[in-house]
Each structure stands twice: as structure tokens, then as C-alpha cells.
């Protein structure tokens, strides 16, 4: 809890205060004409980044948990191998490559970015959903069935609650990776905290790179601390 508060304060301070740190970056990088990124407000970038992460993570979580539940049901058992393989492929595929393929098909913009992030984010959720649901002990499941819990009740009252810690760990990994990966979406013209980083890299402006990276890093740490609090609850 303490960690969460500290990171949150730092994150808010950096988001709204970074624009006022010109003297600091000017001193650090005296060769740069514009030592602080001013093309967009950091708050606007943070909001856009959060929106992109929020939407893509939400889809990845729903898809990951949904497929995880389906392939652990008796009817879906046959698809478990395929689902795991596809999700694993999704993660070995670099998001940049997904973007490179998506852009010619769908053009620049938010859609290809969301798709790339979803594909990338499904695996940890799916893997942990399968692991968590399979980890529910057979006697517990048998007792539930034998007492007259229908399939939905077994899932909702027994399997999911028991699998929640494992599933939550997968969601945590997925979201944290997503926060970092979302920065790449700026290569296809989406406004994210990656924008200062990309501009900084192409214009040899290390100060921009630092500012973008600082915010992405703080956001990841804050969200991770929030998951920590949730996992302990």
C-alpha cells in the first residue's frame, strides 16, 4: 500500500510537473535547443496512453479468460492445445511486426495498435487462466458436482474463486507488459507516452527519450503496485 501511494504521487508529480523542469534538462543537455517535450502536454499523452492500455488490456483479459474457461470445459478440451499454441505464437511475434503487418491492411491509427497489443497481451492471461482452473483439485470439483452444483455454479462458485490468484497474476503480467509495449504504438501514429521517445530517438534528443521513458516506467510501477495491493486483498 505504501509503495502504491509513493509511486502514485511520483507519477502525478511527473505528469504535471515535467513541463516545468526545463532548467534541469537544459543543464543536463546544454547542446539541445528544446530540452523539454512541449508538442503535447504530458497529461494528454498519459491519458491517451492509459486509454490505449485500458482498451487493449480489457479485450486481452476478456479474451484470455474466456478462451481459458472454454478450453478447460469438457466440450472445449480438444481446443486447449491449439489455443495455447496460438497464444504462445502471439507472444513470440514482436508487436512491431504485428504493426508492420497491420498497417498495410488497416492503415495507420488506433485499430492496428489495439490489435497488436491484444494479441501480445492474451498469452499470460490465457496461460494463467488454464493453469489456475486446472489447478483446482479434482476432489473439490467432484464434491461440488456430486452435491448438485450445475456446471455454471461449479465454475462461478468453486473454480473461478480458487483460480483467481493465479489468473490475477497473469493479468498483472499482461497489463504491465502492455504499458511498456503500448509506447511502440506511436510508430503507427497513435498518441502515447512513446511519442516523445520516438521523436527523441529520431531527432537525437535524449532528453525527450528520458521524459517519455520516465513516465512509462512510473506508470508501470504504479500499476504493478496496485496489483500488489489487489493480490493481497
Amino acid at each position: 500500500m505504501k509503495r502504491l501511494v509513493v509511486f502514485m504521487v511520483l507519477l502525478v508529480a511527473a505528469t504535471f510537473g515535467l513541463a516545468q523542469t526545463r532548467p534541469l534538462f537544459a543543464a543536463m543537455f546544454p547542446a539541445l535547443d528544446r530540452p523539454v517535450y512541449v508538442q503535447d502536454s504530458f497529461a494528454a499523452l498519459m491519458l491517451a496512453h492509459l486509454a490505449l492500455v485500458g482498451v487493449s488490456s480489457l479485450i486481452a483479459i476478456v479474451v484470455g479468460i474466456g478462451i481459458g474457461i472454454l478450453v478447460t470445459r469438457r466440450a472445449g478440451l480438444a481446443f486447449r492445445g491449439i489455443a495455447e499454441t496460438l497464444a504462445a505464437m502471439g507472444q513470440t511475434f514482436p508487436p512491431v511486426a504485428v504493426l508492420a503487418i497491420a498497417v498495410p491492411v488497416m492503415g495507420f491509427g488506433t485499430m492496428p495498435a489495439v490489435i497488436a497489443l491484444v494479441i501480445y497481451g492474451v498469452l499470460p492471461v490465457l496461460q494463467n487462466t488454464i493453469a489456475g482452473l486446472s489447478g483446482v483439485s479434482a476432489p473439490v470439483r467432484e464434491a461440488a458436482r456430486g452435491m448438485g452444483f450445475g456446471p455454471l455454479r461449479v465454475l462461478a462458485l468453486v473454480e473461478l474463486p480458487l483460480a483467481t490468484p493465479v489468473i490475477l497474476a497473469g493479468v498483472r503480467v499482461s497489463v504491465i507488459i502492455n504499458i511498456g509495449t503500448a509506447a511502440i504504438a506511436s510508430t503507427v501514429g497513435v498518441k502515447t507516452l512513446g511519442l516523445p521517445i520516438l521523436l527523441g530517438l529520431s531527432a537525437a534528443n535524449t532528453a525527450y527519450v528520458l521524459q517519455g521513458a520516465l513516465l512509462v516506467g512510473l506508470l508501470a510501477l504504479t500499476v504493478d503496485a496496485a496489483f500488489d495491493v489487489a493480490a493481497r486483498a
Partner: peptide, 10 residues
């Protein structure tokens, strides 16, 4: 229904 390992909901 009672089974060997009780199967209580943990």
C-alpha cells in the same frame, strides 16, 4: 455424497 478426501471447498 461423501468422498475419501472430503473435498471441502478450501
Amino acid at each position: 455424497y461423501v468422498i475419501q478426501s472430503a473435498g471441502l471447498f478450501p
